[in-house]
């Protein structure tokens, strides 16, 4: 215990503990005998309230031995485990140590399971019911909070089943996304685009790219201003997975649909983050999870279903 500058409290606690246990034994010893009448009626000779007599109904001796056993147990316990002041005990047991031992045992138990999958390709794994069952559980515990139980996401949380990938949909890229996380950064572009009216025109041009309902006059005016966006989203608006720039032509609207939503994003920008799972999940878990996520949009429906 490094929180104290001297050993005083440790000794204090240890002494109280030992004295307490010794006092229990002494109490047991001294209260074992009493001066009492040996009258035939089995009373102690004490009479209360005129006629209320105290019977002598002694405790069975085996019960006393149970008490002694608890005292012996406490002595052994204090010798083996931390408890006597800051003594760590013979076993040097700690909560942290037990946690780590249990975790490493758990990891050792599941290691052969993940070892089986380590040589498998994502394609094969996504057809393996056991791997997919594990993948589903890992997904439900770690991913479903944002991406939804059905992996179809929500506003600002990408849908993982639609084949549209911000950062690339190959197993390697998915694995990278899970392990390292991603930060999608759309800077505020209002100044680069021009006047508020220009921003509106660009929004209609963006809507037109996917054939969504738009004002074609505004769209044609906005096309000229789209140059500011093309640096990331490309001249054709098909995006760039290397930068995490979304494809604007596929009618998938992660941050909201329609003129207002697009204008808001152009004006204010957006930073959207997928947290890294590397420290949280083991390599084996990430690998199985990668296959599960890859399988969601790559045809091979989970065989377990």
């Amino acid at each position: 215990m490094s929180d104290f500058t001297s050993n005083f409290w440790s000794v204090y606690v240890a002494v109280i503990t030992v004295v307490g246990i010794a006092a229990c034994l002494l109490l047991l010893w001294f209260s074992g005998k009493a001066k009492a009448m040996t009258a035939n009626d089995n009373t102690t000779g004490h009479v209360w309230d005129g006629d209320l007599r105290e019977m002598n109904n002694p405790l069975p001796r085996w019960w006393v031995w149970l008490f002694v056993i608890t005292i012996v147990f406490s002595a052994i316990y204090l010798a083996m485990y931390p408890g006597l002041g800051n003594s760590p005990g013979k076993l040097s047991w700690t909560q942290k140590g037990q946690y780590e031992a249990e975790m490493s045992k758990g990891e050792k138990d599941v290691a052969p399971l993940y070892a089986k999958f380590s040589g498998m390709s994502p394609e094969d794994m996504s057809k393996d019911p056991q791997a997919m069952a594990i993948g589903e559980r890992v997904f439900m515990n770690n991913c479903a909070q944002c991406h939804g139980s059905d992996a179809r996401g929500s506003k600002s949380f990408p849908n993982l089943t639609d084949g549209d990938w911000l950062h690339g949909g190959t197993p390697d890229k998915i694995k990278e996304t899970i392990a390292k996380g991603r930060v999608g950064n759309m800077p505020p572009m209002a100044a680069a685009v021009g006047t508020p009216d220009d921003v509106k025109n660009v929004a209609h041009y963006v809507l037109s790219l996917s054939g969504s309902p738009h004002d074609s006059l505004r769209a044609s005016l906005g096309k000229a201003k789209f140059g500011a966006c093309a640096a990331c989203h490309g001249m054709d608006g098909k995006g760039n997975p290397a930068l995490g720039a979304p494809n604007l032509t596929d009618d998938i609207w992660l941050h909201g649909y329609g003129e207002n939503a697009i204008v808001a994003i152009v004006n204010s920008g957006k930073v959207n983050q997928m947290p890294a799972q590397e420290g949280k999940l083991s390599d084996g878990q990430i690998q199985v999870l990668t296959s599960y996520v890859w399988g969601l949009s790559n045809g091979a429906k989970v065989a377990a279903r």
Binding site: K33, K35, M37, T38
Partner: peptide, 23 residues
């Protein structure tokens, strides 16, 4: 709640007894 005084004749019967009964 006052214990009655043991009468002198009782005193002869007062002995130490064990309060833990052997089985």
């Amino acid at each position: 709640i006052v214990p009655q005084e043991a009468t002198p004749s009782d005193a002869d019967d007062m002995v130490m007894v064990s309060l833990y009964q052997a089985h």
